[in-house]
Design a protein around this nucleic acid. Structure first.
Lengths: 263, 263
DNA sequence: TGGTAGAAGAATACATTATTCAATCAACCA
DNA sequence: TGGTTGATTGAATAATGTATTCTTCTACCA
């Protein structure tokens, strides 16, 4: 602790710049770990030499010494309690609600990855690659995810359109041809609106890719390629959040597949 | 402990010089604190470049990273267990349900979760809750993520607006007041455009929340609350993908925080 | 008004770290 | 045996990071 304490103690007798440095370090102790003297200087808005002089004024040989001292001083503050923290703390540290989220998310991700055949993922990637246009349709709860997918596809050079309000659903499907593709995204509810579109598309020979919850979802039945998210057992609001994590994970898998295929 | 354990574990598959280095470090862990790569090289009787290469082979960016890792690992105290108490490291690969992408993603998520103080996350959640309007601005590469965040916020009843093209940036900030908030999102590049907006906002007393890459990002310097994503070491296209995973994870953390706070 | 001390940054000297490249060595194999 | 491949190594050097010097500026004071 000494080093940080010293800084706090001397704060009053410091010059303006020195105080700025001290404050920054006290506020962002962890960051220092990977800051060079120049980076710290930029972050605080002083010159690199001021950083060095500051270090020396505090009694260290130079900046690296200060850095180490700060680090030691800081690490001393962390109690490393009760044995088993060997696996570099899964998501976020202590048992906060946030790290708990990390655990649950991991579970969903693993389950989701587990139920989707590599085959199907590959097929989806191939279909996307070959499609001329891709229409993305989603249920109400999956709008944000659908937008995200659409944007990624556009970035990759795929001609994708997201049907925001569902108004255009029917007429857009009408304008698609055989070389095109419809991607339907759905979470726990509201698949009804998608079924018709999917059906209609299939009749016209348009490939349909579905991204729905695992285990019976009316929308997926009408799809050529089906990808699934395994929902968590959580109660409502968190479940939605986690479900989206799963959806996003699938999307990331697709994108990564497309990236590889590109080369 | 991971770092020293890893060294011990890999000892058998090392070349002569590498093993000499590993042995020396394991025997003289404390000394490393004040050794430069050259000093370590001399002490062991190898060339300086071998020391650097050794560090990189173990998965660190360079010698300083190794040094820090060893130091951290050592500071963690002495733990007893002999047997395999940690994740399969090198070739083992094992049948994790997660794909290779999944593994990398997990790494980014863990790192990202690790570098953000719970404090800061909480502060961000609180600020969002208290804000009247939230403007979301992003660099080019983070548009999709920003859209996603905006949508989630709207869903939660927060009045959020995403400034798609950056055209409105300045005028929108102008129309914000003290009770409002600006959220800037940035990945590896293109932070320049955000700095001015952030600065301007701050001058007007508007809270600024940044969501940027860890370790030096000009945009984050001008923010009141800073959240970071730890980028992966991957090469370009995958790195982007993984970086977004990290960004999304932070967003999910925020959303989950907001959900909890709501009750 | 001029002198002095302290603080700050630009330029630069110095030190450390990372990379490139060529030499060496071991393993494999026709 | 001799040739080929791939890994390992260190010397030279490029790149990056740190410390010093020197100059400028400001505040204070006689």
């Amino acid at each position: 602790m000494t080093c940080l304490l010293k800084m706090r103690a001397m704060r009053e007798q410091m010059s303006v710049n020195e105080r700025k440095l001290a404050d920054f370090i006290l506020d962002n102790t962890k960051l220092l770990r990977d800051y060079s003297s120049q980076q710290l200087a930029d972050a605080v808005g002083v010159s690199q030499s001021s950083v060095v002089k500051f270090s020396q004024k505090l009694g260290y040989k130079g900046y690296p010494s200060l850095k180490l001292a700060v680090y030691e001083s800081y690490a001393g503050g962390i109690s490393s309690p009760v044995g088993g923290d060997d696996a570099p703390l899964p998501f976020g540290g202590a048992n906060t609600p946030l790290s708990e989220l990390g655990q649950k998310k991991l579970e969903v991700l693993e389950n989701t990855a587990g139920i989707n055949d590599l085959e199907h993922l590959r097929a989806a990637v191939k279909a996307i690659r070959n499609a001329r246009c891709i229409q993305v349709s989603a249920c109400d709860g999956s709008v944000s995810v659908a937008q995200y997918l659409t944007y990624q596809l556009l970035e990759l050079g795929c001609w994708a359109v997201f049907d925001q309000g569902g108004m255009l659903q029917r007429s857009m499907v009408d304008s698609l041809g055989e070389e095109d593709m419809l991607c339907i995204i759905c979470d726990m509810h509201g698949e009804e609106s998608l079924v018709e579109a999917a059906n209609h598309a299939r009749e016209k020979g348009i490939k349909v890719l579905s991204l729905t919850r695992y285990n019976y979802n009316a929308a997926s039945i009408h799809a050529d390629i089906r990808l699934y998210v395994m929902p968590s057992e959580e109660e409502q609001p968190l479940q939605r959040l986690l479900f989206r994590s799963g959806q996003l994970h699938l999307i990331e898998s697709l994108v990564s597949g497309l990236l590889v295929a590109e080369q």
